Amino acid sequence: MTDTGSGHSLRGRLDYQPITQRRRLALPGNARVAVWTIVNIENWRPTGPMPRTVLPPPMGQPLLPDVPNWAWHEYGMRVGFWRFHEALSSRGLKASLAVNGTCIDLYPQACQAALDEGWDFMGHGFVQQPMHRVEDQKAAIADTIDAIARFTGRPPRGWESPGLTETDETLDLLAEAGIEYVADWVLDDQPVSLRTRAGEIVSVPYTVEINDVVMTAIQQSPSDEIFRRGRDQFDRLYLEGKDIPRVMAISIHPYLTGAPHRIKYLEALYDHILSHDDVVMWTGAEILDWYKAQAK
């Protein structure tokens, strides 16, 4: 893969193509925006450091097990996930479930509820750790795909790396394993094709902006931030989508937006979006199929 002076091969994965200067895509019924929701469920191993923390260790002395921060996450799976399930199902919406492979056995009722609702299962690593810390990426990818395939009856078509992390080889390994789309590349409002040594893989637009890890865990925004920022994001994409269709992602985690003081703002965001005509509410796989059909 050609290096163009970036120091690595990322630029070699795709050509620069302004959204205003490419072949026009058309959503069904001339819709303006396709919106997809990504629900992330993860295995935070109690024996190790937590992927994120809400409570710093007393006197700056880390301790394992990290009971409060592990329990903070576990609340999301015991309670918060079910708030997501109700908010989506009551509105006739499906999500894409970004799931660690080990979560199939850890949280079977949540995975079954997602399967029963027809959600699109995406690989999200085998456990919750960055890809550059995975000893054998190829094996972890295969184990994740196998766990999802055994549970759902079909392998996942999409992948979201934990923390959106990739090494220079991750994309190639994903394509070789049969993954068709990824959510790690947050660089466009439309799907784009990425080059790999096993052919092309599609980047479906994901987000680090309308993402509760960023808004809540990192920026520590007020509880209503997902509604205020999500509404403004949607309104601009809807305006621009009249001429150039757009994709909007909403990325949520049960331990964050599933908290009692935040869930109503996610519901308000959905109700705002659903009050507009010319919008399709899709899963990642449905966006992939639309893009592939358009690209023919």
Score class of each variant (00 low, 15 high):
I201Q: 00
Y265W: 04
E42H: 13
D3Q: 11
A87T: 05
A31L: 11
I179W: 01
Q219L: 06
Q220L: 09
S90E: 08
I218S: 06
V279A: 06
R52I: 12
D184K: 07
A183Q: 10
R32C: 11
E74H: 09
S275W: 03
G7R: 10
G101H: 09
D146E: 12
E240L: 14
G5K: 00
S193K: 07
H132R: 12
D105M: 14
Y75V: 05
M248F: 01
A198Q: 03
F227H: 03
W290D: 05
A95Q: 06
A142L: 02
N100E: 05
A110N: 12
V134K: 09
A110W: 13
A177D: 00
I141Y: 00
P191K: 00
D172K: 00
P191Y: 06
I273V: 09
G7W: 15
T37K: 04
L64N: 13
L14N: 08
H253D: 07
P51G: 09
R11F: 15
I218D: 05
R236H: 11
L256V: 02
G158K: 01
Q220K: 04
T165Q: 09
K292C: 04
N43K: 14
V182M: 03
A71H: 10
E74N: 11
T216S: 07
Q233Y: 14
R13D: 02
T257R: 01
E176W: 03
I263Y: 05
E209H: 12
Q109W: 14
K264M: 05
G153L: 11
A249G: 10
M1F: 06
C103R: 11
T196H: 01
W70S: 13
I148M: 02
A95H: 04
D224R: 02
A177W: 00
S90W: 05
T20P: 00
W82A: 02
R78K: 14
E176L: 01
L88M: 12
V186A: 14
P62Y: 09
D188S: 13
I104E: 09
P51E: 09
A71P: 07
Y291I: 03
L256M: 01
P156G: 04
R133D: 12
Q129R: 15
G60I: 04
N211F: 07
V33F: 05
P245K: 09
D143C: 04
E166Y: 06
G123W: 05
V99S: 12
L64V: 11
H73W: 11
R11M: 15
I210Y: 00
K264Y: 06
Q219V: 02
L63H: 13
D212K: 00
L269G: 02
H261L: 07
A140T: 01
V39M: 05
A31H: 12
R231W: 03
H272S: 01
A183C: 13
A87V: 08
L164Y: 15
E267N: 08
L164V: 15
T37C: 13
P130H: 14
E240I: 06
R91L: 11
V208G: 02
S223F: 06
A113F: 15
V279S: 08
H276D: 00
L194A: 04
D105H: 11
A147Y: 05
V247H: 10
W70E: 07
G101I: 06
R154M: 09
T20F: 11
R246D: 02
I19Q: 10
S89I: 10
V35I: 12
Q109Y: 13
A98D: 04
A34S: 11
P51A: 07
R231M: 08
A147G: 04
A268Y: 01
R13S: 01
I287N: 08
